[in-house]
Amino acid sequence: MNALVEIQNLSTYFKSEQGVVKAVDALELRVHEGETVCIVGESGCGKSAAAMSLMRLIPEAVGSIVSGEIWFAGRDLRKVSKEEMRKLRGNELAMIFQEPMSSLNPVLTIGEQIMEPIMEHQGLSKKAAQARAIELIELVGIPRAKEIAKSYPYELSGGMLQRIMIAIAISCNPRLLIADEPTTALDVTIQAQILDLLRKIKDEAQTAILFITHDLGVVAEMADHVVVMYAGKVVEVSPVVELFEEPKHPYTQGLLRSKPVLNQRRAKLYSIPGQVPNPTTLGESCYFHDRCDQCLDICRVKQPPLRDGGDGRKVACWLYEEESVRGQ
């Protein structure tokens, strides 16, 4: 089966005063039609930069995509014109953000903001767009849609606003929905409702979802496939069940161990020792080597490649390489 999104060897670098930051380093990513792929990793590991690269929204002043291909439905997004890209955004490619409170324009009504992409991309008249907007508000589970359409963002709660953001995102039936930590700013019950809503959309419209999060609980609930990132690199790719049952990369193992377990009282929660490395001073070593509890000699001098294990899982770690390769 051909993938809807296929990212090959994508690198996005940011320029900073201390030097070049490799925010995304040789990223490989595949999302199939109707599938949910989660990108997990801690803050600053390049999750959002990867999503922004896919949308071609990396501000030119601070960074750029330096290499790689981004295939979306048979087109290389790095090669399409700005105008074509604009027509794709909001239409076939949609995105929702972390902060629903500040992602809506404070001076426009909810209805107006939902109508906009519909009028722009589907060429509907104002009246038809209005009707569709009200339909969408109902679809995302907000009662009294007509009144809500006339209200301003500051009049709604965070959970409702995130539903509105989702309504805007799905208004043109996108093929891919990128969700950049959509539940991080919301409390837990609202988070569960939003996740339910996203799952419903995925099931009904067969929308592929690229879900970015740092919350493993959310991953377990949402993902079909999981991509674990560390310092701009993919360290492990795996179907969700296998990842939770048997994490391969020491970083993934550490992440899973640092989750609290219900009904178990422990004096101190496990945490991975050390800190995320400074992104400007990364050398040739495995980026995780100084925090790894299973570090080998080769880890300090050479980066492990992302190797396909044959069982649908990929891992970038010397522990899983043949002795002969390691010895080189």
Partner: peptide
Amino acid sequence: ESEFMQAAEVLGLRDRRKLFFHLLPNLT
């Protein structure tokens, strides 16, 4: 540079639309 303008960017709106419908009303 505000977040809602990034969100508008993601919607694939035309510059004219962003300028007159999204930005100027904020300056009313």
